[in-house]
């Protein structure tokens, strides 16, 4: 990779092009196809939890109605806004890479700035989540046999111990996805610092963006179903 050379078919060789691909477009197409297939499995995994929610809601409507009032609507709403803004900054990071000139420090700085903003939004989301979870722990609003809210003065009708099971599994798995996304963002940020990304090569930023948006997408459904719906 150190010497500039032409590929086997006479074109100018991009240093980011792996030898088993013919063109950058083909390489990016393969990467993106793989990412979309992974996202399909992510959607199917979360759909199992959403189905569990709907089944429990169908059999025990009073359980969802009684227990969801104890979730903090404003914390959930704040987190929704934070995630939506982070989706925008992520989309802007991808765009900055798409239009960035190779080895142009100003363009690299833009990619880095938008990635840092997205990372910060992920951090705010997790901090709000931490305060929400702490409040639930403190009030004994926990899944299954750990449920002790009635000993803390909360008489929640229905089957709140099952509701909080669904709540913690759904928001917990989603929170893990946010943390994984933040870890990937550090990696992509370091690659951006190294100058990997420009309009000639942005598949890495773009795939991180696709992952981040699917995490946002899950929250778009989680928020109204868990926090708002009556």
């Amino acid at each position: 990779m150190s010497t500039a050379h032409t590929d086997a078919h006479g074109g100018e060789h991009n240093p980011h092009l792996a030898h088993h691909f013919d063109t950058m477009e083909q390489q990016a197409g393969a990467a993106k196809l793989g990412m979309w297939l992974f996202l399909a499995t992510e959607i199917l995994m979360f759909s199992g939890l959403f189905l569990a929610y709907f089944v429990i809601r169908m059999f025990y409507p009073e359980m969802v109605l009684g227990a969801h009032e104890h979730l903090n609507k404003f914390a959930g709403g704040l987190n929704t806004v934070v995630l939506l803004v982070s989706s925008w900054t992520m989309a802007m990071a991808v765009r900055s890479a798409q239009v960035g000139k190779p080895n142009n420090q100003a363009d690299i700085a833009k990619i880095k700035a938008f990635l840092a903003m997205t990372f910060a939004c992920g951090g705010i989301f997790m901090v709000v989540k931490y305060f929400e979870y702490s409040a639930k722990f403190a009030h004994g609003m926990l899944p299954g046999k750990f449920y002790t809210a009635h000993l803390h003065g909360y008489d929640i009708p229905g089957l709140p111990h099952i509701f909080f099971g669904i709540y913690f599994v759904m928001t917990g798995l989603h929170g893990v996805h946010v943390l994984v996304g933040m870890a990937l963002m550090v990696w992509i940020y370091l690659r951006a610092v190294r100058g990997d990304f420009s309009r000639q090569n942005y598949a890495g930023v773009e795939n991180l963006g696709l992952y981040w948006h699917i995490v946002d997408l899950v929250w778009i459904f989680l928020f109204p179903l868990l926090y708002l719906v009556k």
Binding site: K145, Y147, P157, H161
Partner: peptide, 9 residues
């Protein structure tokens, strides 16, 4: 509707 959460303990 149940009055309180079922406590398994």
């Amino acid at each position: 509707p149940m009055k309180i959460g079922i406590d398994n303990d």
